[in-house]
């Protein structure tokens, strides 16, 4: 009963629904190149921001162990991000960000980006996921 009460909470529902979004949005691509069991947070500056369909990409100069490595990070579509509250100008070249990703399985510096946090610690482009009937 306790579990049911928690699941009935709108906040928890929205949170759980938001976890599903990246999966659904990339549904037409296989995810098998990404290790979804692994989540990594990269910190660095945006080198390139490709606001394009079918997927947006971020080139990130990430600081790792005192060195800078360029990561290629694939996201969902422009159309999906817009529906989540993103706009093209929410990210710019040179921005300091932290990005949560599922890394590539093959160990190369790439991954699927899930969440971007700005230098102020706030998540960029975050809105509540669409609720049916709303």
């Amino acid at each position: 009963m306790k579990t049911r009460a928690i699941l009935n909470s709108p906040a928890i529902f929205l949170f759980l629904a938001s976890l599903l979004l990246p999966v659904l949005a990339l549904a037409h691509h296989s995810f098998e190149m990404f290790d979804v069991e692994k989540t990594v947070v990269l910190t660095g500056t945006v080198k390139q921001w490709q606001w394009t369909n079918p997927h947006v990409w971020i080139q990130l100069n990430a600081q790792q162990d005192g060195a800078v490595t360029e990561w290629s990070l694939e996201g969902v579509s422009v159309n999906q991000l817009e529906r989540q509250g993103w706009k093209r100008n929410m990210l710019s070249v040179g921005d300091a960000v932290s990005i949560t990703i599922h890394p590539l399985r093959n160990g190369k510096p790439g991954g699927q980006w899930l969440k971007v946090t700005g230098a102020d610690g706030k998540q960029i482009g975050l809105v509540a996921p669409a609720v049916p009937g709303k």
């Binding site: 190149m33 490709q50 394009t52 369909n53 079918p54 997927h55 990409w57 290629s72 694939e74 579509s77 422009v78 159309n79 817009e82 529906r83 590539l104 790439g110 669409a130 709303k134």
Partner: peptide, 18 residues
């Protein structure tokens, strides 16, 4: 779908792929 969420432009232009 809600009338407020109609179809939009979606041009597939970026063929980058891992």
């Amino acid at each position: 779908q809600p009338a407020s969420d109609g179809i939009r432009e979606y041009i597939c232009e970026n063929t980058r792929y891992f």
